[in-house]
């Protein structure tokens, strides 16, 4: 069971309070009707499947209820960083 830092509660809490919510930084297109079938397919289905740092979303579902972003190393399963929804993708990651 992991410990996850909720950027809203500013506390590191048991994984049991959180739910995973897919890859981060994939915004819903403002006007889907203008998207080609290929673009829409990519939005729906194409994900990075990173080996190493992965940008993903979590929700503090059984806590403050907020969705937030996290960077998790898929090799070590360690969280490198969490940050609030809407904040830009960090350019550098902590060691």
């Amino acid at each position: 069971m992991l410990l996850i830092h909720c950027p809203y509660c500013e506390a590191t809490l048991p994984e049991l309070e959180f739910t995973y919510a897919g890859e981060a930084h994939i915004a819903r297109p403002a006007d889907p009707s203008t998207m080609s079938d290929e673009q829409w397919r990519d939005f729906l289905f194409i994900r990075t499947n990173a080996r190493g740092p992965h940008f993903e979303r979590w929700r503090h579902a059984h806590g403050c209820g907020r969705f937030f972003n996290a960077v998790r190393d898929t090799v070590s399963d360690k969280f490198l960083l969490t940050y609030k929804a809407g904040e830009p993708k960090p350019e550098s990651l902590p060691e």
């Binding site: 048991p14 309070e17 209820g65």
Partner: peptide, 22 residues
């Protein structure tokens, strides 16, 4: 309850889980 209860000070409260029940 998986929370560290010593971190929940008297006079506070939180949403959490008890045997996965919110």
């Amino acid at each position: 309850c998986p929370r560290d209860l010593t971190a929940i000070a008297p006079g506070t409260g939180t949403r959490t889980v008890f045997d996965t029940v919110q």
